[in-house]
């Protein structure tokens, strides 16, 4: 009995240090949903990303609805893990009564930016597809862009900037605005840092869970390692290897 209560207490302290845990749970749920969608869609043999690629009028239709929902899930699954420390920062730097609200506002604005990016990316990809290039060429081009992006100064700058925090006022509309502003700003840096990688996801679709998982791990590792051990170049190398692989083995995606 005492053992159990002390275990509960320890658990409580651990969770108190990690107020972002509900957001982490949502990330896990997003992954579960994506896996479920993948399982059902592969049974039906249909793939949302390939629907209506031909007619320009169908572009927006293809982007809308289902594609956008799966994009939002993908954004939560892939892009929120990297920002969990920021969610914790928001939680611990808000007064107790406002913690949940502050973290929710932060996370919602962060994901909203990624969804907006998704609309643009999906429209762009659908437009490119309608011009009818080889699908392999499209994947290859995105891979090369993503790999080169890893080596740029903008990329490094954004990764460093992601650790920057902003003032969070304590109460009232200012506090809410502070959380939203921080979320938008962090997502903006993240778009600069990881945008090309997500463009790749817009091309190959949410169906490729292995690629999704690999990219998520790479992005989180790149952010978490110290600046001494920059991982941007190795991640870029992996992308370049993927590009070569795409050329050698057609139709792999």
């Amino acid at each position: 009995m005492t053992d159990r209560s002390s275990a509960v207490r320890r658990m409580g302290v651990t969770l108190a240090w990690r107020p972002e845990w509900p957001v982490a749970v949502i990330v896990v749920m997003a992954w579960v949903a994506l896996i479920a969608i993948h399982a059902s869609s592969s049974m039906q043999g249909a793939h949302a990303a390939h629907v209506g690629a031909a007619a320009p009028t169908a572009l927006l239709a293809a982007v809308g609805g289902w594609a956008l929902v799966s994009w939002a899930l993908m954004s939560v699954a892939m892009m929120v893990p990297v920002t969990l420390p920021a969610v914790r920062h928001v939680g611990l730097n808000s007064i107790r009564r406002r913690r949940r609200r502050a973290m929710a506002l932060y996370a919602a604005s962060y994901v909203a930016v990624w969804v907006a990016f998704g609309v643009l990316a999906l429209v762009l990809v659908a437009a490119l597809r309608s011009t009818g290039p080889d699908e392999r060429l499209l994947v290859l081009g995105t891979l090369v862009i993503a790999a080169l992006w890893q080596l740029t100064r903008w990329k490094r700058r954004a990764v460093v900037a992601c650790q920057r925090t902003v003032p969070l006022p304590p109460t009232g509309w200012r506090a809410d605005a502070g959380c939203v502003r921080f979320g938008v700003r962090q997502a903006g840096r993240c778009v600069v840092s990881c945008g090309p990688l997500m463009l790749l996801m817009a091309v190959i679709g949410h169906g490729n869970l292995v690629v999704m998982a690999a990219l998520t791990v790479g992005i989180v590792a790149e952010r978490r390692t110290s600046i001494r051990g920059r991982l941007a170049v190795p991640v870029g190398g992996a992308l370049a290897a993927a590009a070569v692989w795409t050329v050698l083995f057609s139709g792999a995606t």
Binding site: W17, N93, R96, P167, P169, P170, R174
Partner: peptide, 14 residues
């Protein structure tokens, strides 16, 4: 510290 520090006051602005 058993629990994380708790925010009790802050400035409104930069």
């Amino acid at each position: 510290p058993a629990e994380p520090p708790e925010m009790v006051a802050a400035t409104e602005q930069t």
